[in-house]
Amino acid sequence: MSDAHVRLDGVTDTAMDDAAEPGGLTVGAAALHVDVTVRTLHHWDRVGLVRPSGRTASGYRLYSAADIARIHRVLIYRELGLSLDDIGELLDAPTSDMTVPLRQQRAQLLDRISRLQAMVDAVDRMIEAVRAGILLSPEEQVAIFGQRWQPSLIVGARERWGDTAQWAQYAERAAGRTPEDWQQIADNITVFEHDLAAAKRAGVRPGSAEANALAERHRASMDAYFDCTLSMQVCLGRKYAADPGFTAYYDAIEPGLTIWLRDIIDANARDRGIDPDSATWT
């Protein structure tokens, strides 16, 4: 639009002056002043939305000041999301009826705002989940996962894997979980760790059917966080054995459990065609 001063009704002084000239504005001049295409004005004329008040001797459209004001009202209602049919009814409705479609549009806008706000909240949760790794305070983590749980494990995992696709997967899943969801996961882990310790005490051998089933349960438990392949699981088992924090955690459940867990993971992977010695994080 030109540098002409814009009045409160949206019509420029220049447009009003031009339209006040004998005959009014041509379609090209009108389109320029209201910042729409000539094709748009032609269409609005055809559908009866904004018909020019005059014609030149040659039959070309001429838009009066009132026509320009109506075009601006159309643009305002379009911005609100109304269809051209609804806009036409609104513009031609008696003054007493004008609030009905506007109130309907207001309700739709509020509903759209609510949906958009929910999307913003979801994105915020994703951002926080990527940053923190879990949307629980350290106190909540201990309350859910037990006194042996170390919140620093999450920090360490983020530092080690924060730029990986698996961490992004983990954050995406974590963002949608409630404390109740985490409690269910924690309960499942507790049962699994109890079964691990019982099998270790019972002398279950790595590579046996029972040990392989436990290794697969471990891998399934990882799937709660990210899609865990056999090779990734082998890397995790080696991480458990090499990291003092993980070793202390598992050995507190049952002495020697960390190495035994690594061994059953390796044996299960080998039985499924993965060489533990050459396994990579893929």
Rank of each mutant, 00 (worst) to 15 (best):
G48H: 07
V47P: 03
D35Q: 13
L84Y: 08
A107E: 13
S58P: 12
V38L: 05
L41D: 01
H43F: 14
R115D: 12
V47T: 08
V36S: 00
G88F: 04
L82S: 06
R61W: 05
R39L: 08
Q117E: 12
P94C: 00
S83G: 08
I71M: 10
L102N: 05
L75G: 01
D35P: 10
V100A: 11
L102D: 02
R103S: 13
D97A: 11
M119Y: 02
R61L: 10
M98D: 12
G133H: 01
I134D: 03
A107K: 07
A66S: 13
H43L: 15
I76W: 14
D86A: 11
S64I: 04
D35T: 14
A57T: 13
I134V: 15
R112I: 08
H42I: 12
D111Y: 04
D97L: 08
T37M: 03
R112A: 13
R46N: 11
I68D: 02
D124N: 10
A93F: 04
D124W: 02
Q117C: 01
I127G: 00
G59Q: 05
V123H: 11
A66F: 04
V120L: 07
D111W: 01
V120S: 08
D67I: 08
W44F: 02
A65T: 12
R73D: 13
Y77H: 10
D121P: 04
V130L: 14
V50C: 02
R39G: 06
L109Q: 11
Q104R: 15
D85C: 04
R125Y: 03
R73H: 11
Y63K: 01
I71Y: 00
L116K: 09
E89P: 04
D35M: 10
V100D: 09
H42N: 12
M98K: 15
L91W: 03
G88A: 09
D121K: 03
L75S: 05
L116T: 13
T99G: 07
T56V: 08
L135T: 03
L82H: 02
D85R: 14
